[in-house]
Amino acid sequence: MNISGESLGTFLARQTVQAATPLILAGLGELLAELTGVINIGIEGLMLIGCIAGYAAAGISGSGGVGLGAAILAGMGTAAIFAGVTVWSAADQIVAGAAVNILAVGASGLAWFFYQNARQAAHRSVSLGRHVGFQSVAIPGLSRIPFFGPMLFDQYMLFYAAIILAVLIWLLLHYTRTGAILRALGDAPEACQAAGISVRTWRTGAVLFAGACAGAAGAYLSIMRTHAFASDMTGGQGFVVLSLVIFGRWNIPGLIAGCLLFGGINSLQQTLQTTRYTSHATLMHALQHIPFEFFQMLPYVVALLALATLSRSSPGPRYLGQAWKQ
């Protein structure tokens, strides 16, 4: 890895934000769904579906935008199945989420197989051309600020979208009637029902939104960050998202802090594994003596401790995971 021209700190900061972006995106959707009382452990599967749908659509159409759109639609479609089973049939959310994960592994494997075959039959390359996926967009002027420029203003388009989305959702949750309803759905669905609000319709909306977010996060992985697809490319990131929503205690600033912490730890680890240092040698060598797995474990341990020490007041939405029967 060549990091000349950038100091190590700047490089790491940029990598951190890059690694955190899909987690923030998927986390925003999951957070909203959990606030309404629906826990979807199938978020991993939704991301994987987004990966393959985005990759295949971008490969066939030659356009990153089409890929992103397809990933969002595919994520919403799969989330619609989940919503049908959990919200409308009132089936168990944990089991349904596990089923969605299994289904997604199979469906993405089959889709990848068909995509490869179709491309080979048409004598086209399976991999994306370099121009097909998204490239990072540097905002003129701002991206030249030392350290923060590359970190915050030289990122993929979806990062900016995720931040805008985060601010909008935060405002929505705290300053609007819609936000009050969303939060009430998870804490007091019977009150919503009494106020004439359809619990099922609103929950379905939140689940679909979470599906769209997870699909977009999948597309980020396959057509922005890596320009490749592999059958295990989400690698547990969906479960990481679930943990980070808990870590942030169902608050958007907390969620984003968790995502950045997790992204930072991961990018530090990758840098340690792949780079040779001349400067910074002492610090890096010291870090290399601690088993890295302990750093990776850190966010989960912190989340557990946070739950164990603070949770008496509110361990999440009261009806989290409970079906609503009308």
């Binding site: 049939s89 089991v95 969605v100 994960n101 299994i102 089959l110």
Partner: peptide, 27 residues
């Protein structure tokens, strides 16, 4: 040479269908 992951599609659909069916039965 079909990918073996197709077994997972079968598993996933079975579980989802069973969930819907048993919810219906319960109602």
């Amino acid at each position: 040479a079909l990918p073996h992951q197709m077994a997972n599609v079968v598993k996933g659909v079975i579980i989802l269908a069973m969930l819907v069916a048993s919810a219906w039965m319960m109602r």
